[in-house]
Amino acid sequence: MNTLLQLFTDFSLLSFVAFGGATALLPELHRVVVDQRQWMDATTFAHLYAIAQAAPGPNVLVVTLIGWQVAGLAGALTATLAMCLPMSVAVYLLFGHWERFKGARWQRAVQLGVAPLAVGLIFSGATLVGRSAGLGWAGWGFVFVVAAFAARARFHPLWCIAAGAALGLAGLV
């Protein structure tokens, strides 16, 4: 029970700074879950991220899987609810007022200002997950190839994931 409560408190607080969604939150999830609470080791964290990539759905699924690893089904539901509920309530209540502050200078300033922070967070998340996964030179080489391809052309991410699984099984990354 204590763990569930901790999970709920930690994750609902994090949802307030999740600008850029769950993807931008990866480094902080890693810090809280691995370093601070020591609910799992870094390798498991990287594995859960990999599993979330291999399942269809919104990016918030990695939070579901972290909850599962911490406290089973109850943990999965608690973590997901904690991450989604506060801002769902906020968006529900702000829905009718958005017209009034949309386009105001402060609103555009916040939106513009948040973008570079989200970019820095996603670079950080990629670095931390890669380090946690224990990638060697070949692994980072594969990361580079995927990044170079995916940044230029929009092709289905499942191809990258399948290639990663195959190369991993073959012992190449």
Binding site: A50, I51, P116, G139, F142, A147, A165
Partner: peptide, 28 residues
């Protein structure tokens, strides 16, 4: 085998993350 496969999938996911960040950086 599962560990090796997940390491490969994680590497692919990390590559996709870098691509996302790079595209967002181009926008600004």
């Amino acid at each position: 085998q599962a560990q090796a496969m997940l390491r490969g999938v994680a590497a692919a996911g990390v590559g996709l993350l870098f691509a996302t960040a790079f595209r967002m950086a181009l926008a600004i």
